[in-house]
Amino acid sequence: MNGWAPAPLIANPWARWGFYSGAALYLMLALGSVQVNWARLAEGLKRGGSFVGAFAHPDFVSRAAEISEGFIESLTMTVVATAVGVVLAIPVGIGAARNLAPLPIYGFCRALIALSRTFPEIIIAILLVKMFGFGPLAGMLTLAFATIGFMAKLLAEDLEDIDEAQVEAIRASGASAAQVLVYAVQPQVMARFVGLSIYRLDINFRESAVIGIVGAGGIGATLNTSFDRYEFDTTAAILLLIIGIVMAAEYGSGIIRKRLQ
């Protein structure tokens, strides 16, 4: 008899079964450590039902003043943070490109990027709220800091991938270092950088809805309050607005990015 079965993903049978049983063991332990309070859950399901129901009749009106203030704060925060972050990301990104920056500057910029990228925004927000007081300024600084890490990392990667021949050609004409940046480097990375900035604008808006929870201004604070008061109709209204704005922003940025090629 000639049997045939598809080749297994992990060739060594010991490693394969070891992997499977390890995974199963982990799953059992992990699931076992999830404590579920069934009474609380049953009660919660009812509340969940009323929350889902709230989406059918969202309440934009009763808290209209708070909602609009929250969104204005979130949107202005997003715009300023993106502008500041993108501008500051340019020198940091250049500093973090190994082919352009000397080693000490490279190390410093890479460390800054790593710091900005590893901590969740909300932790940065907690610290900045402690330093700068409650309000959207702390939130703006949080988002700007996160933007620097995000944009500078991607810019540095693009800069490290540029075509060196073009740089060499401009340098050979007797151009200064600044002229080499403007004539040979900038044209190669500009279009993608602008596209990513617009993408980051989207992300910053979404994040601005979160950092309000720890007092950094924006719609998050309004949202948090509505949860605390169990005003699910208002919550539903805010969530629908966030989804709507994100959709509109994504649609708009898609068009702009397409035009930039």
Partner: peptide, 23 residues
Amino acid sequence: FQEYALVERLSVMENVLSGRLGY
């Protein structure tokens, strides 16, 4: 250069004028 090494996203005129950057 062998592979021309023009700055691809600049116009022909900008590429030619880039030869004057030292001046």
